[in-house]
Design a protein around this nucleic acid. Structure first.
Length: 271
DNA sequence: ATGGTTGGAATCCAA
């Protein structure tokens, strides 16, 4: 069987629920992980999203900021929410697929939304950058514990870091820009490798191919300028790497009217 | 060197 998983920072699920519908109609992934839903739990559009053919939904939200959700065609046997940095921030949610998901049963899918980190890449001058580093430190500690469980897993999300040289439009120009500083990129690569995750996109499409999933709203002609960054990731435990068949970015959505600044990233596995 | 845009909530903050 095929299992397809998409991650998409939607930047307001209520404003863009019709774009979610259009994307799901076009691609029909089995699982859709959303970040930045920006929606308190009592206003989350469960019914509407279910009507798109995804009867199993889990969500953790908050008013105005953050928020993560997972839509699934298959039932899950458990859900999990981690509180990071001792805050109530809704930045993680996970599911484990139930027996009805057949060969995919038992796979856990973690959906993360890493803090953006503000503008100044200095933890002393900028508390938001300090928060990002603390979040990464907690992800590292969690990743090591998680690896010892030895369970098959997929980690997706807006990690707000473009780790490799060809994950940004200009490596040199972005070395001092939050999301591509050596401190961030090295920290992310180290925690990924320590926890045994394979970067799905680069596993199939190694450098020097340029791959982006985000284009700033501030660029007047984002498509022509193409000053993108690969901030959205799908990582797999090593046992799942051999069954990863394809990875793609749906750049089309970035050209839709009133788009999210992030495009969906999808992995297709053959289990 | 600077400012550029967006969403949500409240007249600014986070991205």
């Amino acid at each position: 069987m095929k299992l397809s998983v998409t991650t998409w920072n939607i930047n307001s699920v209520r404003l863009r629920s019709d774009q979610v519908r259009q994307f799901l109609e076009n691609e029909r992934p089995d699982i859709l992980c959303l970040q930045e839903t920006k929606c308190p739990d009592d206003k989350f559009p469960f019914k509407e999203l279910k009507s798109f053919g995804y009867p199993f939904i889990t969500n953790v939200g908050q008013k105005g900021y953050n928020g993560v959700a997972i839509l699934s065609k298959y039932p899950f046997s458990s859900t999990q929410v981690m509180s990071m940095c001792e805050r109530m921030d809704a930045r993680h949610i996970a599911i484990t697929l139930a027996p009805e998901a057949k060969q995919a049963a038992g796979i856990t899918i973690h959906n993360f939304y890493v803090p953006a980190g503000g503008d100044i890449p200095d933890a002393v001058l900028n508390p938001k950058f300090a928060h990002k580093l603390q979040f990464l430190a907690e992800m590292r500690a969690w990743g090591e514990r998680n690896r010892k469980l030895g369970a098959p897993g997929i980690l997706v999300g807006d990690l707000n870091i473009a780790p490799l040289e060809h994950d940004v439009w200009s490596h040199k120009k972005l070395l001092d820009v939050v999301s591509h500083t050596p401190l961030e990129t090295e920290t992310l690569e180290t925690l990924r490798q320590e926890a045994g995750w394979v970067d799905g996109m680069r596993h199939l499409r190694p450098e020097p191919e340029k791959i982006y999933s985000w284009w700033s709203y501030r660029s007047p002609d984002w498509a022509a300028a193409d000053k993108g960054r690969r901030l959205d990731h799908i990582w797999l435990t090593e046992d799942l790497a051999p069954v990863l068949k394809s990875m793609h970015v749906t750049k089309e959505t970035r050209g839709w009217e009133r788009p999210s600044d992030h495009a969906p990233v999808t992995a297709i596995l053959e289990l």
